[in-house]
Amino acid sequence: MNRVAAVITATMLLIATTGPARAQGASVEDSIAAYREMLADDNPAELWEIKGKAFWAKKRGPKNASLEACNLGLGPGVVKGAFAQLPRFFADSGRVQDLEMRLVSCMIDLQGLSRAEAEKNHFSTDNDASDIEALSAWIASESKGMPIALPQSHPKEKEAYAVGEQLFHYRAGPYDFACSTCHSSSGTRIRLQVLPNLTEPAEAKAIFASWPAYRVSQGTVRTMENRITDCLRQQRMPMADYGSQVITDLTVYMGVQAAGGQMAAPGLKR
């Protein structure tokens, strides 16, 4: 898979760098868009979806139970449309949870796993696949075409949005970076990568709708937790805990900004 990823990445760079008017930004971006379109009908994330669906029904843990009774917010076992309304507040945990933290809760409560077991390999490596990446791909695909509609009625959901907005603009670290450094103006790039303006609803919709996503450069499906952890790494922040409040609140901020967008995950990314 990694060799395939390398070849595709090289192809992408070739397309990006051999356009007819190569020094002009717009044509570079057009080439990248053309590359994405070329691959869009053939998203390798489908393999993760198949695996995730099987994993949902698989019995495991001390309680020898599947995840089929897991409540993702729309009632026990309801998967269709659930992802388009996450993160949300859950009364049983007393917390606002994203899909990944909800899955961890269900693995602990329904299957009897320890937190460490439930979170094991949450971000896959070359040697270890991730159950959570596969589950995320499948559960997200079950919300395709549905409007993004994170609930904002519970006080904790409102608080998550408000704190998320503060965190989005929080400059810190040796580079003075905040999320807003790269994601609050439209049409700019880092190197050749076009940056979405997440304060602009139209752009936030397209981005929020496309995670989790198959990442060509990494040869696997990556989740929003992974994406934000990596943004914070590039901001020169410390490594955030898996399922940390900072990540949840930033996800809520983005999701509420993206309200009304049409879910299209798993997406396909560089």
């Binding site: 608080e159 408000a162 704190v163 503060q166 965190l167 929080y170 400059r171 810190a172 670290g173 040796p174 003075d176 020169r236 922040m237 410390p238 490594m239 955030a240 805990d241 940390s244 409040q245 900072v246 990540i247 609140d249």
Partner: peptide, 28 residues
Amino acid sequence: RTAAALASSFTGAPPEWLQRLVQDDVQA
């Protein structure tokens, strides 16, 4: 509440990294 979120979110990071979360005047 934002400060509390930051303080609870990096418990696995090396202690010497946590100072990066504290803003100087200009950042704030």
